[in-house]
């Protein structure tokens, strides 16, 4: 039996009487890199928001590595080992790139209540490593708000990595990137998955990216998963073609 890093059972969320997710069951195996696809409004972002504690589910259970994290607040979920990079880059705009990542490192290291020691004393190596990995080393001193869209997404990833996650959620990790940047970023994600054994769950509009970089793909439609399988199985699936691919890519 392969162990699940993430197990979701019967997850329900309603906003004003409308089901945004409906009795969702979902499994992610340890070490797996998996993608969620689905048309706009399918509930992908809501699903991530539920998994990371931004919304509370009305019903259902979320297990992370066997631990019930349902309805935990976001900061506790992150501490447990889940990181998230946002679709719309959501960084600390007036701090430098270095300070952005350092804050994440400090949060992970639990030194945020050190009041009387200089921030520079903690986590320099970890910050440098995360910036290196994400190709931001040359921009450590740039104010984050001034970065290009693509670089902001890289910073998102660096911040997410700084928390040393065991599970990483990436919401449209390559949105706004050039073809080259997209390729670089996804290769980085692959490496993180392989070398650091981080389980990855991502959403993506670019089907090329999805089929090349996901070991497993799940189709979310109107708040529930219709199909899940390997890229090949998904490619063959009639339902997927009807629901999703039919919309035109």
């Amino acid at each position: 039996m392969t162990e699940n890093i993430l197990t979701v059972r019967g997850l329900d969320k309603r906003f004003g009487g409308i089901h945004v997710t409906q009795a969702i069951d979902f499994d992610l195996r340890k070490g797996e890199q998996s993608a969620i696809i689905g048309p706009n409004g399918a509930g992908k972002s809501t699903f991530f928001n539920l998994l990371t504690g931004y919304h509370r589910p009305d019903r259902g259970k979320i297990l992370f590595d066997g631990v019930d994290i349902t309805s935990w607040p976001p900061h506790r979920i992150v501490k447990a080992g889940i990181s998230r990079a946002f679709q719309v880059s959501n960084i600390f705009g007036r701090m430098t790139v270095h300070e952005n990542v350092r804050a994440a490192v400090h949060a992970h290291a639990g030194v945020t209540f050190r009041l009387f020691a200089p921030a520079a004393r903690f986590g320099g190596d970890e910050v440098a490593e995360a910036l290196d990995r994400c190709g931001l080393a040359g921009q450590a001193d740039t104010v984050a708000g001034d970065l290009s869209q693509g670089d902001k997404k890289k910073l998102e990833l660096a911040i997410a990595l700084a928390g040393r996650p065991r599970l990483l959620f990436l919401d449209e990790p390559t949105a706004g990137m050039s073809i080259q940047e997209t390729e670089d970023t996804m290769q980085l994600v692959d490496r993180l998955n392989r070398e650091l054994e981080i389980s990855v769950l991502f959403t993506e509009h670019d089907m090329g990216v999805v089929f090349n970089h996901a070991q497993r793909i799940s189709l979310l439609h109107r708040g529930s998963f219709l199909v899940a399988g390997t890229p090949d199985e998904i490619r063959q699936n009639e339902l997927v073609k009807r629901v999703y691919l039919g919309e035109g890519i």
């Binding site: 990371t52 931004y54 607040p73 976001p74 900061h75 506790r76 992150v78 501490k79 990181s83 998230r84 946002f86 959501n90 960084i91 600390f92 705009g93 007036r94 701090m95 300070e99 952005n100 350092r102 804050a103 994440a104 400090h106 949060a107 992970h108 945020t112 921030a119 911040i159 700084a162 928390g163």
Partner: peptide, 19 residues
């Protein structure tokens, strides 16, 4: 620096694991 992070983006700060 946590204070500055919360100033710039409170929601994101929570997703760093900051209470």
């Amino acid at each position: 620096y946590v204070l500055r992070a919360m100033r710039d983006n409170q929601r994101r700060a929570a997703f760093l694991g900051i209470n």
